[in-house]
Simulated assay, not measured.
Amino acid sequence: MKPHIATIILSVILIAMSAWGYFGSATPSTTALLPMGWGVMLALCSIGVKKENKIVAHIAVVLVVILALALFMPLKGSFGRGDYVAFTRVSIMQLALFGTLAIYIRSFVQARRNK
């Protein structure tokens, strides 16, 4: 899979899971909308990634890594509370983030080999 397509898919997943977390809650918190903002930023980065802009691609990777690290505490918290719907939601985002990160790494390695 090409990195820009993985970025778009990740953006859709982040936006959808964030909306589900916010609108599906009886007491919604605005922090549930944070992944949506990251998804929008990544969607904007996908344009530069498609054009093989190295700077934009590296920015996208940094965003993915930061968000993957930032979601560990909500994952741990949702499991600790026994909120398995939230745990599933955050797990889906984590899996998508790590999958996209693997695609980026593979792309960077391939670009290095082609030099």
Results as ranks from 00 to 15, higher is better:
His4Gln: 11
Ile5Ala: 08
Ile5Phe: 10
Ala6Val: 12
Ala6Met: 11
Ala6Cys: 15
Ala6Thr: 03
Thr7His: 04
Thr7Met: 09
Thr7Tyr: 01
Thr7Asp: 08
Ile8Phe: 01
Ile8Arg: 09
Ile9Val: 15
Leu10Glu: 09
Leu10Arg: 02
Leu10Thr: 04
Ser11Asp: 09
Val12Pro: 14
Val12Phe: 10
Ile13Asn: 05
Ile13Ala: 03
Ile13Arg: 09
Ile13Glu: 04
Leu14Ala: 07
Leu14Met: 11
Leu14Glu: 00
Ile15Trp: 06
Met17Ser: 07
Ser18Gly: 15
Ser18Pro: 10
Ser18Asp: 00
Ser18Glu: 06
Ser18Ile: 10
Ala19Met: 14
Ala19Gly: 06
Trp20Arg: 14
Trp20Phe: 14
Trp20Asp: 15
Trp20Ile: 09
Gly21Ser: 14
Tyr22Arg: 06
Tyr22Ser: 02
Tyr22Val: 10
Phe23Cys: 08
Phe23Ala: 10
Gly24Asp: 05
Ser25Leu: 10
Ala26Ile: 07
Thr27Val: 10
Pro28Thr: 12
Pro28Gln: 05
Pro28Val: 12
Ser29Lys: 03
Ser29Ala: 09
Ser29Met: 05
Thr30Tyr: 05
Thr30Arg: 02
Thr30Phe: 13
Thr30Gln: 03
Thr30His: 02
Thr31Arg: 00
Thr31Val: 11
Thr31Ile: 15
Thr31Pro: 00
Ala32Asp: 04
Ala32Leu: 11
Leu33Cys: 05
Leu33Gly: 02
Leu34Thr: 15
Pro35Lys: 00
Met36Gly: 14
Met36Phe: 12
Met36Val: 02
Gly37Lys: 08
Gly37Pro: 04
Gly37Cys: 11
Trp38Tyr: 15
Gly39Cys: 01
Gly39Glu: 04
Gly39Asp: 03
Gly39Met: 06
Gly39Ser: 12
Met41His: 04
Met41Arg: 06
Leu42Ser: 11
Leu42Asn: 14
Leu42Lys: 06
Ala43Asn: 09
Ala43His: 01
Ala43Gln: 13
Ala43Met: 12
Cys45Arg: 01
Cys45Ser: 11
Cys45Ile: 02
Cys45Glu: 05
Cys45Phe: 13
Cys45Val: 01
Ser46Thr: 05
Ser46Gln: 06
Ile47Cys: 01
Ile47Glu: 02
Gly48Thr: 08
Gly48Trp: 00
Gly48Glu: 07
Gly48Gln: 05
Val49Leu: 04
Val49Cys: 01
Val49Asp: 05
Lys50Gln: 13
Lys50Val: 00
Lys50Phe: 13
Lys51Asp: 15
Lys51His: 14
Lys51Gly: 08
Glu52Met: 10
Glu52Pro: 10
Asn53Met: 09
Lys54Ile: 05
Lys54Asp: 09
Lys54Leu: 06
Lys54His: 04
Lys54Gly: 10
Lys54Thr: 06
Ile55Trp: 07
Ile55Gln: 07
Ile55Lys: 07
Ile55Gly: 12
Ile55Leu: 12
Val56Lys: 01
Val56Arg: 00
Ala57Tyr: 01
His58Leu: 07
His58Pro: 01
His58Asn: 14
